[in-house]
């Protein structure tokens, strides 16, 4: 039976991909399980958006749907060229809301120079879906082809482009009725400029945007793919204090929170400082940090070195994020 957890980007999602989709659709491009499929100099990607609430601090489902797609292309070293969208709304959905969402989509699409060239719109009976779903597909031109988990080797450094988890907090803050500080926003934004800048430096081997499942999901996926150990220095991970405090209150693991405008890059050790300094030139990259390294150990797992010097296994998220009493 399919459960919510199967769609959460965690271990269950991976299981379903490995057991159902991969065998059924078997082909060498899909098998790489990257954010976009890459073939002959182009990359193609698709994603469905069902975020609740549809308007949140720092964005809405429209902004998210275009951003997510262009970011999926960017982490595959591709510049978006064109976007296709499908919008499904529930009977009775307010026109003003739809207008707002569409204008956010248009804005981001212009910003990254990726026109929305085709689309589809459907209305379903009330209750069949929750307000609105958006499915976005993008096609991009690959400008940095030398990416892939197979290029990652021991000694490589792990970089994140900024604080992680702000998007989840902006979303979950509403669900848990917390009041966030003035100006706290989702990180939802295109990352293309930053990716372009660091690819100029070179030495980048693998990139991923830590969306659903957060750092924990992305890093575990990489560790399993390369069958090596990833060590994360807890002190260096740039979580914002609001994110950490929110997690402490409700019992969430900050490594499981999602970002929609950040990326993880695994880079050559020699180039890591230069790449970091490129990133920090951008306002959205000013908190970028080297957070860990790849280690030569034949165990596909992620270890966190805690502030107290202890070691902890970072397991992949196993489903929905749930608040805890203990």
């Amino acid at each position: 039976m399919i459960k919510l957890a199967h769609g959460s980007g965690g271990e269950k999602t991976r299981e379903l991909i490995e057991k159902l989709f991969l065998p059924a659709f078997k082909n060498p491009i899909l098998e790489k399980l990257e954010d976009s499929g890459r073939l002959n100099g182009i990359a193609i990607t698709i994603d469905g958006y069902t975020v609740k609430p549809i308007f949140f601090r720092g964005g809405d489902i429209g902004k998210l749907s275009i951003t997510g797609t262009v970011n999926d292309l960017a982490v595959c070293g591709a510049r978006p060229k064109a976007i296709a969208v499908s919008i499904i709304v529930e009977d009775g959905f307010p026109t003003e809301k739809l207008e707002k969402i569409v204008s956010s989509m248009a804005k981001i699409s212009r910003e990254v120079n990726a026109p929305i060239v085709t689309g589809d719109f459907k209305v379903v009976s009330k209750g069949e879906i929750d307000e609105i779903f958006i499915i976005t597909s993008g096609i991009g031109e690959i400008f940095y082809p030398s990416l892939g988990a197979d290029r990652v080797s021991a000694g490589d450094r792990i970089i994140v482009s900024g604080p992680i988890g702000d998007h989840s907090l902006a979303i979950m803050g509403e669900r848990y009725e917390v009041e966030l500080p003035q100006g706290f926003e989702s990180d939802c934004a295109p990352i293309l400029k930053l990716v372009e800048a660091i690819t100029q430096v070179g030495g980048i081997k693998w990139m991923r945007d830590p969306t659903r499942g957060g750092l924990a999901a992305a890093l575990n996926e990489l560790a399993k793919a390369i069958n090596k150990e990833i060590l994360i220095y807890e002190d260096s991970v740039p979580f914002r204090k609001e994110v950490l405090n929110f997690c402490e209150i409700f019992g969430f693991d900050p490594y499981h929170l999602a970002s929609e405008g950040r990326f993880i890059a695994v880079v050559d050790k020699e180039k890591s400082e230069k790449i970091l300094s490129e990133l920090t030139k951008f306002p959205e990259g000013k908190n970028a940090a080297i957070i860990g390294e790849v280690r030569e150990k034949s165990k596909g797992r992620v270890i966190v070195k805690t502030k107290f010097g202890g070691l902890r296994l970072l397991d992949p998220p196993t489903g929905e994020l749930l608040p805890r009493i203990c």
């Binding site: 848990y176 009725e177 009041e179 966030l180 706290f184 204090k241 950490l244 405090n245 402490e248």
Partner: peptide
């Protein structure tokens, strides 16, 4: 009450 922990306010 409204209580706060480092920027996060809640009921």
């Amino acid at each position: 009450a409204i209580t706060e922990l480092g920027g996060i306010k809640k009921k």
